[in-house]
Amino acid sequence: MNVLLKILRTMGAATVNGVWRLGFAARFFLAVLRYSGQSFLRLPLTIRELFFSGVLSLLIILVSGLFVGLVLGLQGYDILQRFGSSDALGIMVALSLLRELGPVIAAILFASRAGSAITAEIGLMKTTEQLEAMDMMAVNPLARVVAPRFWGGVISMPLLAAMFSAMGIFGGWLIGVVVIGVDDGAFWSQMRAAVRFEHDVLNGIIKSFVFGVTVSWIAVFEGYDCHPTAEGVSRAITRTVVYSALAILALDFVLTSFMFRGI
C-alpha cells in the first residue's frame, strides 16, 4: 500500500512540476516580449546577437544545405528515371526543400549551433551571479541580456532557412543538370510551373519564423531557468537541444497538416 502511494505521489509531483515549469515558461515568454522594446531602441545589442547566432551559423547552414541538395538530386533522379520523368527532378528538389527540409533541418541545426550557445551563455551568467548583479544595478537582465538574444534568433531563422533552401536547390541543380545531364530548361521550367510563391515559398517562411520563435524561446528559457551549477548548465544545454528538436518536429507536423492538406 505504501509503495503504491509513493508511486502515485511521484507521478503527481512530476505532473505538477511539469505544469509549473510550462506556466513559468509562458510567463517568461510574455515578460521577454514586454521588455523587448529596449532591444530595438538600443539596436547594437540586437545586432551583436544577430552576429553570434546568424552570421556564425552561416557556414554550417550553407554547407549542410548544399549536401542535402546534392543527395536529393541523386536520390530523386534515381527514383524519377524509373518512371521516365527525370525532368520533374526540379519540382521534387524545390518542393521538398521549400516545404519541409529547408525550415526543419535549418531549425534543428540552428538549435544545436546557436540555441545551445545562448543557453550556455545565459546559464553561465546566472551561475556567476552576473544576472543578480545587473538587477542590483537596476538594469533589467530580461531587457539587457535575454530579449536581444531572443530577437536575434527570431530574425536570423527565416533568413537562414531561405539560404538553406536556395543552396539546396543549387545542389540539386548541380547534380541533376551538370553531373547527370537532365535538361536545364525542363528542370527550371517544370519547377517554376509547379512552385507557387504564396503557397510553397510563403508557407516555408512562416514555418521557419515559428521555428525561430520556438527555438529562441526554449534556449533563453533553459538558460535563465538552469540550476546555477556546472552540472545544471550542461543539463540545460542538453535540454535545449532535445526540446528544440522535439518541438520543431511536432510543430512541423501540426503546421503541415494545416498548410498542405492537398485540397
Binding site: 521549400l98 517554376r192 512552385v195 507557387r196 515559398v201
Partner: peptide, 8 residues
Amino acid sequence: LATKVGSY
C-alpha cells in the same frame, strides 16, 4: 526563391 524558383 521568389523569382527563379517560384514564378516564371
